[in-house]
Design a protein around this nucleic acid. Sequence first.
DNA 1: CCCAAAATATGAGATATCTCCTATTATCTT
DNA 2: AAGATAATAGGAGATATCTCATATTTTGGG
Lengths: 227, 227
Amino acid sequence: MGWRMEIYKNEKRQHFLEKHSIKHLFSFPIEDYIEVHEYKRDEWIIQEGTRPDYLFYVIEGKAKIYVTHQNGKVSLINFINPNEYIGEMELLNDIYYTKGIQSSTKTICLAIPFNRCRAQLLEDVVFLRELTRLLSLKSTIMAAKYTQSLAFPLENRLAEFILQTADGHVYKEKHVMVCDFLGVSYRHLLHVLGQFCEKGYLQKEGRSYLIQQPDALRKLADMLRNE
Amino acid sequence: MGWRMEIYKNEKRQHFLEKHSIKHLFSFPIEDYIEVHEYKRDEWIIQEGTRPDYLFYVIEGKAKIYVTHQNGKVSLINFINPNEYIGEMELLNDIYYTKGIQSSTKTICLAIPFNRCRAQLLEDVVFLRELTRLLSLKSTIMAAKYTQSLAFPLENRLAEFILQTADGHVYKEKHVMVCDFLGVSYRHLLHVLGQFCEKGYLQKEGRSYLIQQPDALRKLADMLRNE
DNA sequence: CCCAAAATATGAGATATCTCCTATTATCTT
DNA sequence: AAGATAATAGGAGATATCTCATATTTTGGG
């Protein structure tokens, strides 16, 4: 994994700047400062514990936010999708423990250098308004995940995850990733998946699972909703 | 609990507006619109599931954010302290499940009516910049609580909580509240407190606990930190 | 001052989840 | 193609945590 991200230059850079223009997110001309970075699958966009030099805006691909605990456990905090920022925390807070960001597919980001843009960004009402909205969502989602994880067993959270990630009626996520994401042991994940099969909600097909009773899963997942 | 919040008028209102001026948090004159609300201990500032009419800024007191789950469990998401907002989520998002906010001491808030101020607030760079910072902190704290709750047993999280809330070397929080906050059953909380006593970390004194070995607790709590 | 509600306590048994161990099968690298 | 590494799989026993039941004590309101 000694790969280094690729920086698009000239026409290629220009192409992506135009294809995914973010002019509307700022009230000052920012495009001149922007670099376009491409990260390969599984490449680290930010190393855990190391302050980044850029605010990133994801335009293509998908990434994961990881944190490592003292007891060796690893948590996959959340996924990052196109049109989301990476590095806002570091932009806003001088003191912050930086989480690791790893691409899970080829990922293309617009990279805005802190040193050149920080002051202007923090004065920009258009930028701040959108960032505020994104952060409020992020915070809400985290609060929900937190309380749900304490109030419900894996069964409910896994049901929701299966429905959200299934491709049609086929579920085939990597177990290890799911363990980190749902915060349970590999053994236990397999145990609950096994139960779902026994109950006929899922059917194992090679190394993936076919959803046989989506309504049963939906019922479990709906328990997580409020009201 | 049929109490209704008190709204300060005239001199009393003026007194609090001046004592805790928030002029510096806005770039437009907001003070004319502000009401000053006083909530008694245990009064609901916002009912769960009901959209509030105000953005609140807490100036004195302390409140708790609650959410109720379908299975009957209740989560105390977090505390709100002076100089924090209540109702930002509703200001920023049209669709949002409103959490319940309950004062835990007499609480005085500056209440900014949405209908009169919303548009101006969302245009105000000073306001947005600070709100962005607060939200980034909130989101970070939630993410940390989430992953910690999955990665560590109650022992570690309780140790931290005891150290944070102890008054000198005396811990005496209400068990029920702590259960909602740490997301465990009453029975289990008492069990772990009992273990701390057996190990000599705490000593039970009537209905409170004396901290005997702060270093042992600190060691447990430090496990939650990153790096 | 009395009563109902809330808070504290504790036992016993169930369940959810973890740790450790051992195989087998894919996948990647060279 | 071979060997190394990651992913899948499942057994067995430990632990963390929950549920339910019950009893006592404290507290707030009339």
